[in-house]
């Protein structure tokens, strides 16, 4: 690891870009307990995947981190602060699920990215030259400079995602939450986003990414939290992202293909291939080694 990266990492460790969730339970107003007794902790310079079936409580965990739902038990601490305090300090950036955005809202791409800077401005939200520069830079990094004057509804799905990613870059939140950033985008945009997340990791940011894209998890996530209304397993990807754990997390929901022997090759090699897939890119176990199918289905 080179020196500047180490320095950046040390600097943000000083701030401690951490998430600590202890014995968190969330009960909605209809009495349904979506998350029960969940605990995990994450350190700076980490990309962590949040993986689980539909309704396993991924978005609920995000809502708890953003203070939208109050825990019925347990607590969430961000960089050591309680949620409300952490939000006031502009520590968390949030990249929303596409379905949650009003695409008809009359704002331009550059205005959306500028919203990332509001927390750094005075109460009148007058952008300084530095703010404008950060916006330009963020747009440049996600490759959206050419689209800055577009109304946000006039973009493709992948471009929309990149705009909100740019906003989180401009915000310079030490913790970045991404709710299903890979749904409905092509492999190229996905690779670009993953590249960006890696850069942010090197700079010491902490990213929590919910995804159904099992295939690419081992590719870019250092840690995984497996969720099914509670934490089934949490830890380094190599330890947690195993076939056994995934089958436990997904139960019968996951498509599971086992190919072996002569179905796979024309010799007597006894090893077999297991393909696990949720809805997007499949995860392939060859024998007992973890590999991922990087070229699609």
């Amino acid at each position: 690891m080179n020196a500047p990266v180490e320095a950046a990492r040390a600097a943000s460790t000083a701030y401690g870009a951490s998430i600590a969730i202890r014995n968190l339970s969330v009960t909605y107003s209809n009495g349904f307990t979506a998350v029960r007794d969940a605990s995990f902790a994450l350190d700076p310079g980490t990309i962590c995947a949040l993986v689980g079936v539909n309704g396993s409580g991924k978005s609920t965990i995000f809502k708890a981190i953003m203070g939208f739902v109050k825990p019925s038990a347990g607590e969430v601490r961000l960089c050591g602060f309680p949620v409300d305090e952490a939000l006031k300090k502009n520590i968390v950036a949030y990249v929303p699920q596409s379905e949650d955005v009003d695409w008809n809202f009359p704002v331009l791409v550059e205005t959306v990215v500028m919203m990332g800077r509001y927390g750094h401005m005075n109460f009148l939200r007058m952008p300084s030259r530095a703010d404008r520069y950060k916006v330009d830079e963020a747009l440049e990094r996600v490759g959206m400079s050419a689209y800055r004057d577009r109304q946000i509804g006039e973009l493709s799905g992948g471009q929309k995602k990149r705009v909100f990613l740019a906003r989180s870059l401009a915000q310079e939140g030490r913790i970045i939450l991404l709710d299903e950033p890979f749904t409905g985008i092509d492999v190229k945009t996905e690779a670009a986003i993953i590249g960006l997340l890696r850069e942010l990791r090197a700079a010491g940011h902490l990213m929590l990414v919910s995804t159904h894209n099992l295939g690419s998890v081992p590719d870019f996530c250092d840690r995984v939290v497996l969720l099914n209304r509670t934490v089934l397993a949490a830890g380094p990807t190599a330890e947690v992202f195993t076939q056994d754990n995934l089958e436990r997390a997904f139960g019968g929901v996951l498509r599971n293909f086992k190919l072996g022997g002569r179905a796979l090759h024309d010799d007597d090699d006894a090893r077999h291939v297991t393909v696990l897939t949720d809805d997007e890119r499949p995860l392939v176990f060859y024998g007992d080694r973890t590999r991922q199918g990087s070229d699609g289905h």
Partner: peptide
Amino acid sequence: ALIWKDLMVTFFDESHARSIGL
């Protein structure tokens, strides 16, 4: 005139508005 931008963010994207401490 003082809070129009804060209202714009709140109505456009409430989670982001919260994340910048509004």
